[in-house]
Simulated scan of single mutants.
Amino acid sequence: MARAFEDKRSAHQKIAAGLRRSITRGDLAPGAQLPPTPALMEEHGVAGTTVQKALTMLKDEGLLVGQPGKGVFVKRSTQQAISPGAYMPPVAAGEPYRWISEAEKRSQRGSSKLLEVGVVTPPYEVAKALGLSENGQALLRKQVLFLDEEPAELTRSYYPLELAEGTAMMEQRKIRGGTPTLLNELGYPPRGLVDEVSSEIPTEDEVVALELPKDMPVMLTFRIVYSDGERPIEVSLLVKAAHKYRMRYRQPIA
Rank of each mutant, 00 (worst) to 15 (best):
M1I: 13
A2Y: 11
A2F: 08
R3P: 06
D7K: 05
Q13E: 10
G18E: 04
L19D: 03
S22V: 00
T24C: 08
R25E: 15
D27I: 06
A32R: 02
A32T: 11
Q33K: 15
L34F: 08
P36F: 01
T37I: 15
A39M: 07
M41T: 10
E42S: 12
H44L: 04
G45W: 06
L55K: 09
K59I: 14
D60K: 13
G62H: 00
V65N: 02
G71H: 01
A81G: 15
S83F: 07
S83H: 03
P84A: 01
G85S: 12
A86Y: 07
V91H: 12
A92Y: 08
A92N: 13
A93T: 13
A93C: 06
E95G: 00
E95D: 05
R106Q: 13
S107Q: 12
R109V: 14
G110S: 02
S111A: 15
E116R: 11
G118K: 05
V119S: 11
P122V: 06
E125M: 11
E125K: 03
A129V: 14
L130Y: 03
L132N: 07
L132K: 03
N135I: 07
G136M: 09
A138W: 05
L140H: 05
K142N: 05
V144T: 11
E150S: 10
R156V: 05
S157L: 11
Y158N: 01
Y158W: 14
E162I: 08
E162Q: 12
L163Y: 03
A164H: 02
G166F: 10
A168N: 07
M170G: 14
Q172S: 01
I175W: 10
R176I: 14
E185A: 15
L186G: 08
P189T: 13
V197C: 08
S198F: 04
S199T: 14
E200F: 10
I201K: 04
T203W: 06
T203M: 11
D205E: 15
E206D: 01
E206Y: 06
V207E: 03
A209K: 02
A209V: 12
L210A: 09
P213Y: 00
P213L: 02
D215N: 08
M216C: 13
P217G: 04
M219D: 09
T221N: 07
T221R: 09
I224Y: 03
Y226R: 00
Y226L: 10
I233F: 03
E234G: 05
L238F: 00
K240Y: 11
K244M: 08
M247C: 06
Y249E: 13
P252I: 09
I253C: 08
A254T: 15
